[in-house]
């Protein structure tokens, strides 16, 4: 098995950085082994297609706009009117790739084009408000919400995993710009790269 190289490369150094505070405000962890695929449908509302895929993936329902649907090994996200994305272990990705016929839609594997971080800590929402223009208050962006948006001029896919945990998926070629922004912005809270 070849190992997929992270675009963060040697720039991701483990340890504690920034302000020395009693509590480390933010944690940053890179998720390295993941699958990310996007499936665009010709008829995204087709009930037969939905039920077929829901059954294959073992989920009760299709994710609504800007929502994530947890499934075994990953999450399913509705990222555009005619498009869903899957993020997680390779198993469901392979099932989806095999299951969608060209007459139903098109599948594009994009795992290599993305960098994937998991952010946590008591100050994580505060940190994200330095770059995200979205309303991250609990009622506006609850656990389970997802959004395609931008930070620092760079497109990101954001998922709220938990009250104080977010996933951030962004493009490989500009990953270091986002990484620098994240490190500089997190310094005031004290942060740890896990």
């Amino acid at each position: 098995m070849l190992e997929r190289k992270s675009p963060l490369g040697g720039h991701r150094i483990l340890g504690k950085f920034g302000r020395k505070l009693k509590e480390t405000g933010v944690t940053i962890e890179e998720v390295k082994d993941f699958s990310y695929i996007e499936i665009a449908f010709w008829d995204p509302e087709s009930p037969s297609l939905r039920s077929k895929l829901s059954e294959l993936l073992g989920i009760a329902d299709w994710p609504g706009p800007a929502k994530m649907q947890r499934l075994k090994g990953g999450v399913l996200l509705r990222i555009a009117p005619d498009r869903i994305a899957y993020l997680g272990d390779s198993g469901p990705a392979e099932i989806l790739e095999a299951a969608v016929a060209p007459s139903e839609g098109s599948v594009v594997a994009l795992s290599h084009s993305r960098c994937y971080l998991r952010l946590g800590g008591a100050e994580v929402t505060n940190l994200l408000s330095r770059g995200l223009r979205l309303d991250l208050r609990d009622h506006a962006f609850p656990v389970g919400a997802s959004a395609l948006t931008e930070i620092h001029g760079l497109g990101v896919l954001l998922i709220r995993r938990d009250k104080a945990q977010y996933d951030l998926l962004f493009m490989r070629s500009t990953a270091l710009n986002l990484w620098h922004w994240l490190n500089e912005s997190a310094a005031q809270f004290g942060y740890e790269v896990l």
């Binding site: 490369g9 001029g153 070629s173 500009t174 620098h180 922004w181």
Partner: peptide, 18 residues
């Protein structure tokens, strides 16, 4: 803000950069 100097615009790196 922070979008200055080296961060004025993104710098895209090829996967072969290293």
């Amino acid at each position: 803000g922070r979008s200055i100097a080296g961060e004025l615009r993104p710098t895209r790196l090829s996967p072969f950069h290293d």
